[in-house]
Design a binder for these strands. Structure first.
Lengths: 349, 349
DNA sequence: TTGTAGGCGTTATCAT
DNA sequence: ATGATAACGCCTACAA
């Protein structure tokens, strides 16, 4: 068993080949400042000839700013985070930054481990969608290290970091009000994880909308578990089995929405005839569901981009005050809310 | 504007604090071999007290095997790749490997750039879903560098690398035969990118199934563009507008399937009454579409895991012969193929 | 068992 | 405009 790998070509090899010093080659590689044209040519040729590739770890070791931005998300299969990551990735790469991506499955322990790893990698910055139960320590350590940190999606009150979130209260309010506008009276809330700020804020938006329109808030209609398909399904099943079932459901996440839809279909109820549904957070296939889903749409891609921008800004102004950017949501009206039906009724009647 | 970042804690700091040499600390950090218990204690305490974090770049520079595995996929928003990445990620992290993820948008130039970046990062290995138009050069360079490379999803004939693929021919055959079993006679093929092996092989499976069942292969029913929703929609529209439209469509990817569904609904045709549909590649929401989609299911998660295993194997046996692992597909029967309808007919009749 | 010293590939400082 | 040289933080012979 032979190892065919030839020794990597180093700066020194290039220097020897071109008959110059390491310093000169380094200068050519980095900026063209202070090197004569003929020499530059010779060096470039040598680089070509040998197929030289700079070694980033050494580069970093020497104190150069890292070229990697770390990203930690709870779930890489959730289309919301996928889109966020896409936004991060596109902008980061336009700045020649690589993306080191990890997902935690919402396990606090895994998350801590990855944060530590990011630190060991000496990443240029970290974009984190914090899990429930995040501890102050690892992040604080990172920050004291001088590494910019940007929190996304979920704000953590006891953590003072730059943050990019969406207006969850307003988004939920918007969705629920739309349901009220359709004439719904008994609107249920299927939510998840109140330990997470989106969970809390979306519930608050729901309650606010109810209050503002003089609708009673029935605790029996408020069901909370986790942001998962299975939770959505289970909670909806319970809701539908009540003596007096709701006439609408507001689902607080895309996973929950899918669960709600499953349960409704299984129960044989019809949307929106028997039950109107509005979900928080769009999904790419919302139009193609058995009932096109009306959703509160988050600007996920923009969240990612904004996070990168904040990272960069913090990098140039390390001592600037901590900032939170709140992006607006939009309502995408499809059919599950009953709007189309009502419109039809208007026409028909 | 002040920079509050304190200088990072180094091995040397720990050594000083513990009153030992750098070597001893290093030994404690790496393996416990050859360090007396009392000293080990002292060192550990110092590490705790100072909050020491090893610096990976320096570690790597010193010749340690890289702890990062690079992953390059064409599209991080495609649920197929998302699942593959998840498989990679889960297994990689269980081996203490980090994942450096990039997506290329199927741009050959971007892809080349990222491969070069992986090389500069000195990744421990690279898992790549190659874009169309991949050039031999950058990969070859990586390989000569001694970096293990594993190709996934798409095999590239002129590239001799370890590869993990699925049995596309068999999968397509399976899907089309199922359509034939339902009594379909004029089965159209909506495909994409014949430059990519999945594109070619799925077409081959389709043709093979037709031939084996004495069905004529009508060139007018074979439509090829790209693996995208828009292509699926456009091609299906054209198919439906023919004087003699097909009675079934086999869609060669998940994106194409979604496009087919959109076009069919827009045209007002009914599935499976007017047209049966089977798609290649499952999607998590297949059950919840306006017509539950029958699909040929790829073991995406396993593809990712197997890729990591091959990487690791190659790492321990650099000179082993190049291997290709082909994973089987499965048929998930839902409703779009007409199977449910037929069953119903049987009962009713 | 522990310490000393050299080098990994790069960049920055200081001469020339 | 160039070149020699000293770090950067870590690991590992080798020496004690």
């Amino acid at each position: 068993m032979v190892d065919f790998a030839p020794p990597p070509i180093t700066l020194e090899d290039v220097a020897r080949h071109a008959g110059v010093s390491k310093a000169t080659v380094s200068r050519v590689v980095n900026r063209n400042y202070g090197v004569s044209e003929p020499l530059r040519q010779r060096v470039m040729q040598a680089i070509q000839a040998l197929g030289y590739q700079a070694e980033r770890p050494a580069h970093r070791l020497r104190g150069a700013a890292g070229e990697i931005v770390g990203v930690i998300v709870p779930d890489i299969q959730n289309p919301y985070f996928t889109t966020v990551v896409r936004g991060i990735d596109d902008l980061a790469h336009s700045y020649q930054l690589s993306v080191l991506l990890c997902h935690t499955g919402d396990h606090p322990a895994k998350q801590d481990a990855y944060i530590r790893m990011m630190m060991m990698e000496r990443v240029a910055g970290l974009i984190l969608a914090p899990s429930f139960g995040i501890t102050r320590d690892p992040l604080q350590q990172l920050a004291q290290f001088g590494t910019p940190v940007v929190l996304i999606d979920r704000s953590v009150s006891h953590l003072r970091f730059d943050t990019v979130i969406v207006d969850n209260v307003q988004g939920a309010y918007q969705g629920v009000r739309h349901l009220i506008d359709q004439g719904c009276q008994r609107i249920a809330f299927v939510g998840g994880d109140l330990q997470l700020s989106p969970g809390r804020e979306r519930l608050a938006g729901y309650q606010q909308a109810l209050a503002d329109h003089d609708l009673p808030s029935d605790p029996a209609l408020i069901r909370i578990e986790h942001f998962s398909v299975e939770s959505g399904r289970r909670l909806t099943r319970a809701l539908l089995n009540r003596p007096q079932p709701p006439d609408a459901i507001f689902a607080a996440s895309n996973s929950l929405s899918m669960g709600v839809l499953k349960a409704v279909r299984e129960a044989g109820s019809r949307i929106p005839a028997d039950l109107a549904v509005v979900g928080f957070d769009d999904v790419p296939w919302a139009d193609d569901l058995f009932i096109p889903l009306t959703t509160v749409t988050q600007p996920a891609y923009e969240v990612g981009q904004e996070a990168v921008r904040m990272l960069l800004r913090r990098h140039s102004e390390p001592a600037a005050p901590v900032r939170t950017v709140t992006l607006p949501t939009a309502l995408t009206i499809r059919e599950s809310c009953g709007a189309a039906r009502r419109a039809e009724n208007v026409r028909t009647g």
